[in-house]
């Protein structure tokens, strides 16, 4: 039985005439890393802001182990750590001071806070920046300090808004490792990310929001299975205008969205169609130089679902 249960019940938030999110019903249990994916304006950040009490819900409520979370409730702040997208209030402190100050504010002793600060700085390669003012760091370094303030004294619920924004690949790798290490049977980690491909490695559960509603809720594998009959094909077409035109026209005919780069084209299509196309093209010697076939990733599944929803949404709008 999970030690923590976070429930969102009929949660909605309206700004003026616009619903940021609507009728969100969710139950999250400890021991999981839950990713909220979705396009810009889907209502992901608003959901996190409602969770940490920065935004008052228009309807519905959130409970943590049955206790209603409300804006300004002191106990909420000791239970939920939040990494916002915007700057931290710690800009005038040095990196070391900022991390230690957060640990102290989270009730740790000076000795423990100092030791943990050193440890976290080392893990995130922040030690060379320890005496730099947070406000003078680059965007990526600032983000790392934000992650460090969460990791230094983690709370039962951790809410991260785009934790890897502005980070270079190495930093992103370190941060995903840190997030994975935060996973604990008594903790819920909720993160919003655009970086579907990287998030895939750590997520136990994926929620996809679209137009303020949860459109998918399940494990990454379940999401991938939604596009199980699809294959991701990358082919390099042999040089020649005629050859390129032929491939292009056939893809257009089949209405696949393809991405071209010089001679290389990438597209995702149903397995049976992919086999048909490839067998046709491969029968023509000299048409294709290279072929790569992959199972779709979480990102492909996400993009494919998003494309469908957008089409349905346009149809719904046209019908109206």
């Amino acid at each position: 039985m999970p030690s923590l249960v976070l429930e969102f019940e009929h949660l909605s938030k309206r700004y003026g005439g616009l619903w940021a999110n609507r009728d969100v019903d969710l139950t999250l249990e400890s021991g999981n890393i839950v990713g909220i994916l979705g396009p810009n304006g889907a209502g992901k950040t608003t959901l996190l802001r409602q969770l940490v009490g920065l935004s008052r819900s228009t309807q519905g409520h959130i409970t943590l182990n049955g206790r209603v979370i409300g804006p300004g409730h002191a106990w909420v702040k000791s239970q939920i750590a939040y990494l916002p997208q915007h700057p931290l209030a710690l800009g005038d402190l040095t990196v070391e001071e900022a991390i230690r100050a957060t640990a102290l504010l989270r009730g740790q002793s000076w000795a423990f806070a100092s030791a943990r600060t050193q440890d976290v700085m080392e893990r995130l390669d922040l030690t060379p920046l320890r005496n730099q003012l947070v406000s003078r760091l680059s965007g990526g370094e600032h983000r790392l300090v934000g992650i460090a303030t969460i990791v230094v004294a983690p709370t039962p619920v951790v809410a991260l808004d785009e934790p890897t924004n502005e980070l270079d690949p190495l930093m992103r790798h370190q941060v995903w490792n840190m997030i994975e290490r935060l996973k604990d049977p008594s903790r819920i980690i909720l993160l919003v990310s655009h970086n579907v491909l990287e998030a895939e490695k750590v997520l136990d559960r994926v929620l996809i929001m679209h137009h303020g509603r949860i459109r998918h809720d399940g494990s990454p594998n379940e999401l991938r299975r939604k596009t199980d009959d699809a294959l991701k094909i990358t082919i390099k077409v042999a040089l020649g205008h005629e050859r390129l035109s032929r491939i292009h026209n056939e893809l257009v005919q089949e209405t696949f969205q393809a991405t071209w780069q010089d001679q290389t084209v990438q597209f995702t299509c149903p397995r049976i169609l992919a086999l048909n196309l490839l067998s046709r093209w491969l029968r023509d010697p000299g048409l294709i130089e290279q072929v790569a076939i992959k199972e779709p990733s979480l990102e492909d599944a996400y993009l494919s679902l998003r494309q469908n929803w957008n089409q349905n949404h346009s149809i719904e709008e046209e019908d109206l």
Partner: peptide, 15 residues
């Protein structure tokens, strides 16, 4: 304006 105040609001401090 910079929303750094929101960070203060979520830190475990008495406002």
């Amino acid at each position: 304006e910079t929303r750094a105040l929101d960070h203060y609001r979520t830190l475990p401090v008495s406002l």
